[in-house]
Simulated scan of single mutants.
Amino acid sequence: MKAESVTDEGGERLLDITRNYSQNLAGLMLEIFALYNLSRTLHVSFDMDEVFYTVEKQMKETLGISEFSIMLLNGDNETLSVWRANSNHYDAMKDITFEVGEGVCGAVAKTGQAIAIQNVKEDERFLFYKGAHKNVGSFFSAPLKNNAGKTFGVFNVSMESPNAFKEKDMLVFNAVANHVAQAMERSKIFTETVKRSITDELTGLYSKRYFMDILGKEFSNASRLGGFFALLLMDIGKPNQSPGAGGKTMDGVIKKVAQTLAKNTRQGDVIARYDDYRIAAILPGANEDSAKIVANKLQTAVNDDVFVSGEEGGTGKLSIVFGCACFPKAGDKPDEVLGKAISALDSAWNLNDDTIRFVSA
């Protein structure tokens, strides 16, 4: 009877071990599936915001983690700031910054090594996001590295209770950080590739091809919604009309003019290099009067910022003229509006107005 009891106890222990092993294996399989699903989804994500929302969804639904943030190094690589965080805490954390080396996140950014803290009250490095998020017991921070191995940010996970992380959890968080870093790197490369395809190499303004595409879309939107817009063309003095402006000099002039225009237009305006010496602007919601106000502003800005070097070393103000056409007055097709703006621009060269040479179709 005694031997039989021992055997029964051994069988129970074996069942317990098997049951625990099965539960752990099921949990591990779930996490592996979550990582696979996250990797597969992020692999086709090229938008930075989409990357974050994908991670947020997968972390919460599959891994049960709802408290996390992504911090990125600023352009000087000396300061970390919160790029995204779960919605419950983002507003409180969005203006928080850390110097490289400061706090846990700063230390991770400096060393490129992950840090796990099981009880944040026992580690003076943890700063509770400088008081913005105090309900933290455990904290994990991993570096985000680009393809060259250079750290560009950190990925943070927190839990309310202390000692909440198991060793396998930290392996999973590290893997998530790697997937996030790779997705953000792909997004950056994709964005830069797209930007190069739609921008003019010399000026950094939009290309003519992109401008024509946006003109068509703006025309369709305005037609459908009963809106209006102004098309403003600006002609920068051709070489024989600007003293000493040879080809090499004019490249510098065009670039400087483009920089000036970019600083003096609204965020929703589309500014493009139309051809060698002409720049085009689509001004949504603008009419002839407001377009002339914009032209005056641009004229003043260019006069203040841009000078043309003469062959003898002198300088002079740049000759510029403006042509404008407004929808719907100028035509019912994009080509008609553009044609009217070009005709107005050619006519503007015949004006002798010392203030501004502006013609509207």
Rank of each mutant, 00 (worst) to 15 (best):
K2Q: 07
G11Q: 15
R13C: 12
R13P: 04
N20A: 15
Q23W: 13
G27P: 03
E31G: 09
S45D: 10
T54C: 14
E56W: 03
Q58C: 14
Q58I: 15
Q58M: 14
M59P: 07
E61R: 12
E61K: 10
L63P: 09
G64T: 13
G64M: 10
S66E: 13
F68Q: 08
F68H: 13
S69R: 10
I70V: 15
L72P: 02
D76E: 12
L80R: 08
L80K: 10
N88E: 13
D95G: 08
V100L: 11
V100P: 06
E102L: 06
A107Y: 06
V108K: 05
A114Q: 10
A114S: 13
I115P: 03
A116W: 00
E122K: 14
E122N: 12
D123Q: 11
R125K: 11
F128C: 07
A132I: 00
N135L: 11
S138T: 05
F140C: 06
K145T: 08
A148W: 07
A148S: 14
F155S: 05
N156A: 03
S158H: 06
S161W: 09
E167G: 13
D169V: 00
D169Y: 00
M170L: 15
F173M: 05
V176D: 14
I189C: 10
T203F: 08
S207I: 00
R209M: 09
Y210N: 02
I214H: 09
E218K: 05
F219S: 01
L225V: 02
F229I: 00
A230C: 05
L232P: 08
T249D: 12
D251K: 15
K255P: 02
T260A: 15
A262G: 11
N264L: 07
T265Y: 12
Q267D: 13
I279W: 08
I282T: 04
L283I: 02
N287Y: 03
N287V: 02
S290E: 14
V302D: 00
E312C: 06
G313F: 11
T315W: 05
G316H: 03
S319D: 12
G323S: 03
C326M: 04
K329D: 04
A330M: 09
E336S: 12
V337Q: 01
A341Y: 01
A344D: 03
L351C: 03
N352Y: 07
F358H: 00
A361Y: 05
